[in-house]
Design a protein around this nucleic acid. Structure first.
Lengths: 352, 352
DNA sequence: CCGGATGGCTAAATCCTTTTAGCGCGCGGA
DNA sequence: TCCGCGCGCTAAAAGGATTTAGCCATCCGG
């Protein structure tokens, strides 16, 4: 293969030393004449010089690579997140390696091993579900990574690692408040493991504060997928719920569909609140009142945090910087009203 | 930062030369005593040695990185594909960098520039929509890449570059045959740019061969998204179609939903065929007869092709290997019957 | 006229591996 | 005795950048 153009070639062509060429091209022109700079740039241009990233990494010790470990990119929320993160990284010249842990502790462990070997500059980690109960293993793995790590969306409040996520309890409470304000009292909820459960918690607490309790028959466990919303719809309607809080939009979509099949109208016969506001991004403009998690913000905020760490890390010769004082940032979700919550007669509030 | 353990450290610890250590660890034990090998392995183990990939890349000239340029990872089909490709690559020890072109020619161009700079070992490229009409630019970009490139899903039959995709015309023809066999004659189609249009072509041709023509009012242009299926449903029903071919499942889902709202039953009042069979992977088990594109096969096949090229490429000192004779592989889609096509009375075929 | 500062540039060291070329030794055959 | 060979191992080069230390003029102030 025709050898690639090296810096030496450029230097020779420009009639200067390799050092000078490097200095010019990296804009480190401490004291270089305009003339010399022009010569080097022209030579580089003419020869179509592209620096060898491996060689550069070898000496600068940064690879301009960031890894994202995601449980499953085939999850709409994570797909969106990956998209936004990639954009953020790209803007600063970093490339994003994406790897799926498949929610498996073992796979996650293996991937982290690879990361160590490859020596990336930073890591976004969305812990696998299987790591929830195996915190010590996860921590050990993270500790073995020689570059900054930021936890995303899950397990972010541990305080042992940088983390950015959403305030799920507060999101649940927003949903509850919306239903309370609309005068609902027979309310259902379909939750699920992890964050969904936190949403449910905020939801339940807020209802309780308003003197409303969740009928156990209306308090079901979902799986974040369309089918569990679909499956739960009938029982909800049967049990006489007037409103249901679905802990993500996909379950809400399943429920909407099933209700439609059952001949029930939303919101006339049943009010629905979803969570995520992710469907629209995928060309599925399901009209449902929902608690939005602004993915762009999550991506921007976490990159900001990781990038800052990467910069710190570069200029240090001692300990792991982010072990010093891990940061946690919780973003606030926001209710988006799309009219699938019916205001019950005689229960209007706030308006005269 | 505590300097990472290098090969020199291992060698010193094991009491051998760096060369020997390298030889042992890379399993190139041409002629090394069992004893020496043990020593080196133990030292490496003890010191937790991890080779520096940058240094290795510098000399071996391969980075163990593969890039996937995808128009938009927030497209269900591409998300699935990315997932599968990542798995394939991972298995051979390669990491996958994912970058979104956003269907923009300019972004694609910029990304390819980065690829050249980073020097990855292989590239999966799903061309941006904007590149469809600017083939020469795309070709120039691809030619500038110094490693094997495989086109995926789009523009794969050009013959100027390796490519793997599905036979879209044939897929369309499968859909048509299904409807013909069921005795439908007033048939609608919602297509779209690119592959959808190829599917439509196969569909139309096969219908024509059976003496059926598509009413122009029933021949609409979609955008691959839920909403365009949703929007087209009413017109289809109005115009008296008994069956509609939706060129992807998302449009089929939109149509199903709208038909439901209109009080029309599927398949009793309207038969529907989708395309992709992608929704189930995302937890949306929409029951619709569809033409399946087996994503795993696409991923496996394209990785096989790319990997073979990477191996060729490694051992060559001359021309670009894949310029010699580009390969094209078309995979066959498959009809999955899920009962959303009604067999019209008096038109049964094949069964007695 | 001299010493020191400064401007413009470069030689050489360094980063860490892989890989090539070959060294020294013991042994078997001539 | 000597040659050649295979074995086990290693010194040194190569790979392409960044970075440190410093050289040589010129210029300015005293």
């Amino acid at each position: 293969m025709a050898r690639r153009v090296t810096l030496r070639d450029v230097a020779k062509d420009a009639g200067v030393s390799v050092t000078t060429a490097s200095l010019v091209l990296n804009k480190r022109h401490s004291r270089l004449s305009e003339e010399t700079r022009r010569l080097v740039f022209e030579a580089a241009e003419r020869l179509k010089y592209v620096p060898n990233q491996s060689a550069r990494s070898l000496v600068t010790k940064n690879t301009m690579l960031v890894t994202l470990i995601v449980p499953d990119i085939e999850n709409l929320f994570f797909a969106s997140l990956a998209r936004c993160l990639e954009e953020e990284c790209q803007q600063q010249g970093y490339s994003l390696i994406i790897a799926n842990s498949d929610d498996s502790r073992e796979t996650e462990h293996a991937l982290i091993g690879q990361i160590v070997a490859r020596g990336v500059d930073g890591v976004f980690l969305i812990p696998a579900r299987e790591s929830f109960g195996r915190l010590d293993e996860l921590q050990a793995d993270v500790a073995s990574i020689a570059c900054p790590v930021t936890l995303l969306d899950r397990m972010v409040t541990g305080g042992w690692c940088d983390g950015v996520g959403f305030d799920n309890r507060h999101g649940g409470s927003l949903a509850a408040q919306c239903l309370i304000d609309a005068g609902h009292t027979r309310i259902g909820c379909i939750a699920g493991e992890g964050n969904a459960n936190r949403r449910r918690q905020g939801f339940v607490d807020t209802l309780a504060a308003a003197g409303i309790s969740l009928d156990p028959r209306l308090d079901v466990v979902g799986n974040y997928r369309f089918d569990s919303g679909f499956a739960a719809a009938y029982a909800m309607a049967q049990a006489g719920a007037t409103a249901v809080f679905c802990c993500n939009d996909l379950m809400a979509a399943g429920m909407l569909r099933r209700l439609g099949e059952l001949g029930l109208r939303v919101p006339e016969d049943m009010s629905i609140i979803g969570y995520d506001n992710i469907l629209a991004r995928f060309g599925m403009p399901i009209e449902v009142t929902t608690v939005e998690q602004h993915v762009e913000s999550l991506a921007a905020e976490s990159w900001r945090m990781l990038y800052a760490r990467i910069l710190e890390h570069a200029g240090d010769d001692d300990a792991r910087p982010w072990l010093s004082e891990p940061q946690t940032k919780l973003l606030e979700p926001r209710l988006i009203n799309r009219g699938t919550v019916k205001v019950l007669r005689g229960c209007r509030q706030g308006e005269e």
